[in-house]
Design a protein around this nucleic acid. Structure first.
Lengths: 110, 110
DNA sequence: CATCTTTATCGTAATATTGCAATATACCGA
DNA sequence: TCGGTATATTGCAATATTACGATAAAGATG
């Protein structure tokens, strides 16, 4: 027990939930918003932006990278992180599908 | 330690991450997809659709409700669950903002 | 080469999540 | 009122996540 029964769900369901899970932490939302703000995927000052220790930030970055939400280029000494459209696009289309459904809902209930 | 330091992040960041976190589990994605499919927010057969025990499904439904992703109406004996546009809309606009940014990115890096 | 800077990893403690059986609650029909 | 059905809650065990100090790894700089 205690383990998520991923194998009982479809690949697509696991994929979507994995991306959503990665966004499911305020620090990681903050990282995403910062990367949006600076646009030009500036490097290492992400650590200074967040109220967390360097090791913790590094871990969060790793999870975002695993989920395909950001990607990082080694740039000499520092590393240059930026948003990766791959995962973002997947979740975006998931939400658009829901929103579409909601818009033209028969409104019969609830 | 071990606790998420929510108080160090903005209200909006916590809000977005809470909704994303709720979607961050394959069973809950499956519930959302099922509610989309049946459209007319049919009641209790959600339990039969999922490969999980009734208690577990009930818990997942509770979390989705807490996050504002679904809402439930008591309908006599059964309960009628359906998608709630409130939380969905919030995350949707978050993603559209990102996608917009990605589209007109200067492409200078990464 | 020695050292600084930047990022990653390890080890560990605290806390949260997941899943289920058992049980409780609430409404329905006979 | 008494089962029968549908959903929620409780209690617990297994596992995952979060956070951080310490330390490692790797390029930059003197």
């Amino acid at each position: 027990m205690g383990t998520t029964k991923s194998e009982k769900f479809s690949k697509s369901q696991n994929e979507i939930s994995a991306i959503a899970k990665a966004i499911g932490h305020p620090a990681r939302v903050a990282i995403i918003e910062y990367l949006m703000k600076v646009d030009a995927c500036i490097c290492g000052d992400i650590v200074d932006e967040l109220p967390l220790a360097q090791a913790t930030v590094s871990q969060h970055l790793k999870e975002l990278k695993n989920a395909g939400i950001i990607k990082g280029n080694i740039e000499g000494n520092a590393i240059c992180y930026c948003l990766d459209e791959k995962a973002i696009g997947k979740l975006n289309s998931f939400f658009q599908k829901i929103t579409l459904k909601l818009d033209k809902r028969s409104g019969s209930c609830c």
